[in-house]
Design a protein around this nucleic acid. Structure first.
Length: 538
RNA sequence: GCGCCCAUAGCUCAGUAGGAUAGAGCGGCGGAUUCCUAAUCCGCAGGCCACAGGUUCAAAUCCUGUUGGGCGCACCA
């Protein structure tokens, strides 16, 4: 709906000044008492046209004419404040009630986007940091779907690297012990209790089947350990409310020949050379500060090469945008990766990387190092058990990806009591209760926006008409942390309204029911988007 | 050393395509309930937006520098 207003302002500008190059037209909620919609476009135009912004605002305001707009006024330095006509609100309410949740669904854009996240090595349970990446990816995927993209959420399973060997050898050590075979515990092996548990689990199920003639079948142990871990990870993610469309195994890139093909493609690109027995790629030609090795002198491909093959695979699957969500410790990988995909003839902007800052763990005000190797970390499972799925999701979602997050388990437990997620759920439940109590099917009743003149009614209406605008903005900047604030603000307006004005039995009961109904639809959409449970009772 | 991220109320944090009086939650103080859920609402107190310069009609936001914290700079993943 606001799109129409934007079009009208654009037309007004063209009427007044001809075809000017518009630097982007941002609409905001006008300050209280100064209208409904505001724009500062006159300031932008002032620079281009070299004229006084107030003069420009005035001229635009005068040429804005539309049945949806009651009046447009230019204010002091150069704002244009627009008072919407009741017709606008009436059509808005009708549209959102007719279409329901699909009011927020943008038409299909036919662009395939892949969001890849979590992708933790299957060598240990997920920790709280994985939860942070998980929620960002999950919610961003949902949002992009809503914006009309063909979205696929993927988990990349690193099941072929050296970490996997360490993991295997760590299990083998304990499994061997159970079967009476002594092996050396790897120097950098995984020390967590779960390793022992996996070994015991394997022994319990298969006894010494994989330890014949004093030799342990490492391949079998590797596969069993991997499957066990992935199963664990999937379980943890499900409890956290995160689901993936696809699980992509690194090992398939070897099996299907992608790795070999990628090496050939790199060689053809003209950016490779041999040095010290290794194959290098000239990433410095694309802004990197040093070249990268693709194939080690041992003949083994590097992680970097395999990851390039993986992204080539994404491109060949038809994705035109790959959004990777990485922890800050992978930051250094961005520039080489972008260089590599360009070397493969893939446009640089195919890959967008969202970096989220590391989660620092505290216990009794002392920092705890998170490490799978030492086994000292708090798992995602523990977090979900302690504070609940919804509170855990909200906890991470509220914070923007690039702020450092200090995580204190005891604090998290305490904060879970007054977590804003309950505020949102409570608001939803009490609004829903009004509709239940009234028992009137409101759909058929006409809506007269004239009858909503109270301050709280108008504020809530204004909040509602801007939601689509805000969603679009959030999806463009990938800033999903703004979603909970959007929900909280909507709830604030809704609660102010609720507290002050009774709906049932009021003179304008019909109009208020429509307002409540539209608010529920919007809130419902936001909660779905964030993966927060909608409770009918609190 | 180089690159990137961060520094906003007592605490946890929002707020960057420069814009109207810098916001919220928690905590503190004071109010509101014969009525649809008080897990609510209303009000008050609390800010040299790390520091110093610069650009601009306008800077928390952009630029330069400084300080403090984090992350990265592998033939690991």
């Amino acid at each position: 709906m606001l799109k129409r207003i934007r079009e009208m302002i654009k037309n007004a500008i063209i009427n007044a000044y001809g075809a000017v190059e518009l630097p982007g037209l941002e609409l905001t909620i006008a300050p209280e008492g100064m209208g409904d919609v505001a724009t500062q476009i006159a300031f932008r135009l002032a620079k281009i046209l070299r004229k006084n912004p107030f003069e420009i605002a005035n001229r635009i305001a005068q040429s804005i004419k539309s049945p949806y707009i009651e009046k447009a006024v230019a204010v002091k330095p150069g704002y244009i404040n627009i008072f919407l006509d009741n017709l606008f609100f009436e059509e808005f309410i009708k549209k959102i009630e007719d279409e329901g949740l699909s009011y927020f669904q943008e038409p299909k854009k036919n662009i395939k986007i892949q969001v890849e996240f979590v992708s933790a090595n299957p060598t240990g349970p997920l920790h709280v940091g994985n939860g942070r990446g998980g929620i960002i990816g999950d919610v961003l995927g949902n949002l992009l779907k809503l914006e009309g993209y063909d979205v696929s959420k993927e988990y990349y399973v690193n099941d072929a690297g050296s970490k996997m060997d360490l993991f295997t050898d760590s299990i083998v050590y304990y499994y061997g012990k159970l079967c009476g075979i002594d092996t050396k515990f790897p120097e950098e092996g995984y020390k967590g209790e779960y390793i022992k548990n996996i070994a015991e689990d394997i022994y319990f199920k298969f006894k010494d089947r994989y330890a014949k003639n004093g030799k342990i079948d490492k391949e079998a142990i590797r596969d069993l350990g991997k499957d066990f871990m992935i199963w664990q990870i999937q379980k943890s993610l499900a409890r956290f409310g995160v689901f993936f469309d696809t699980w992509f195994y690194e090992s398939t890139l070897y099996k299907n020949g992608d790795v070999a093909r990628t090496i050939e493609a790199f060689k053809k690109s003209g950016y490779t050379y041999e040095k010290d027995g290794a194959l290098w790629f000239r990433t410095t030609a694309f802004g990197d500060d040093k070249d990268r090795v693709l194939v080690r002198k041992t003949g083994e491909p590097t992680y970097t090469l395999v990851d390039a093959a993986y992204h080539k695979n994404k491109w060949e699957r038809g994705f035109r945008k790959a959004i990777d969500i990485w922890g800050a410790d992978h930051f250094g990988h961005i520039i080489p990766m972008k260089a590599l995909i360009q070397g493969l003839g893939i446009p640089e902007d195919f890959l967008d990387v969202i970096i989220y800052q590391i989660v620092h763990l505290y216990e009794n005000s002392k920092e705890v190092m998170m490490s799978k190797h030492t086994g000292t970390f708090i798992t995602l499972d523990e977090l979900v058990s302690e504070v609940g799925k919804d509170a855990a999701r909200f906890f991470f979602l509220l914070k923007s990806a690039d702020t450092h997050l200090n995580f204190d388990m005891t604090l998290a437990k305490k904060e879970s009591v007054d977590n804003p997620v309950f505020y949102v759920q409570y608001t939803y439940a009490r609004l829903l209760n009004i509709l239940k109590k009234s028992g009137v099917p409101i759909a058929k009743k006409s809506f007269n926006a004239n009858k909503l003149s109270e301050r709280e009614e108008r504020a809530l209406l204004n909040e509602l008409i801007f939601i689509k605008e805000n969603l679009e903005n959030i999806s463009r900047t990938y800033s999903v942390n703004k979603l909970p604030f959007l929900a909280i603000n909507l709830c604030k307006s809704a609660n102010s309204f609720y507290q002050k004005h009774k709906v049932i039995g009021a003179d304008n009961e019909t109009e208020r029911l429509h307002l409540v109904n539209a608010t529920i639809t919007a809130l419902s959409m936001l909660m779905d988007l964030m993966g927060i449970e909608k409770k009918e009772k609190m």
